[in-house]
């Protein structure tokens, strides 16, 4: 029995064999599980513990260390706005404020429709193309506040396109 889709389950089966020690699969496994389930639920902790062969406590000890891993559901599109120094100098906070305004949520908030969540994050490694954000794993760089509504609309459209009945 697994929580995961057959594809992810197969990927995780392979993952533990990839390293000299199974345990090395722990961090990627948690991240991939989160990508599919949306967050690290108690059930994810339990299955990951069992797949790696360690205790659930051990999984939690590790999982809670990494800031990309979350323990509550986020929006379908998790908007992560960098406000670290390079981005801040070029208007990172203005971008962040604009997202707050447009989405009507604050740090770690989720929109009522569950489509978006917002997070102020540390440097995401695109400092020379600041200010920048990441929506899930997609980067958007050299932003201006006025580009924000367009980005949001883009993802709204994507959500509609991906909806099962569409």
């Amino acid at each position: 029995m697994t929580l995961f889709s057959p594809r992810l389950a197969a990927r995780l089966d392979a993952l533990v064999e990839k390293y000299p020690l199974r345990r090395s699969a722990l961090v990627p496994m948690l991240l991939y599980a989160q990508d599919e389930i949306g967050y690290i639920s108690d059930a994810v902790v339990a299955e990951v513990a069992q797949r790696i062969g360690i205790t659930e406590l051990d999984v939690r000890n590790v999982a809670t260390y990494y800031s990309m891993l979350r323990f509550k559901p986020a929006g379908k599109y998790n908007v992560q706005v960098c406000t670290n120094i390079s981005c801040m100098l070029r208007g990172g906070y203005e971008i962040y404020e604009r997202f707050k305004e447009e989405l009507g949520i604050g740090h770690k908030g989720v929109t009522p429709d569950g489509l978006f969540s917002l997070e102020e994050v540390e440097c995401i490694g695109v400092c020379c193309w600041a200010p920048a954000i990441q929506v899930n794993y997609d980067f958007h760089d050299e932003l201006k506040p006025d580009l924000v509504p367009g980005i949001i609309d883009g993802y709204r459209g994507k959500a509609v396109a991906e909806a099962p009945h569409a």
């Binding site: 205790t55 406590l57 051990d58 939690r60 000890n61 809670t64 260390y65 800031s67």
Partner: peptide, 8 residues
Amino acid sequence: WALGVQNR
């Protein structure tokens, strides 16, 4: 092994 360290 009943105690751990969590968060950062």
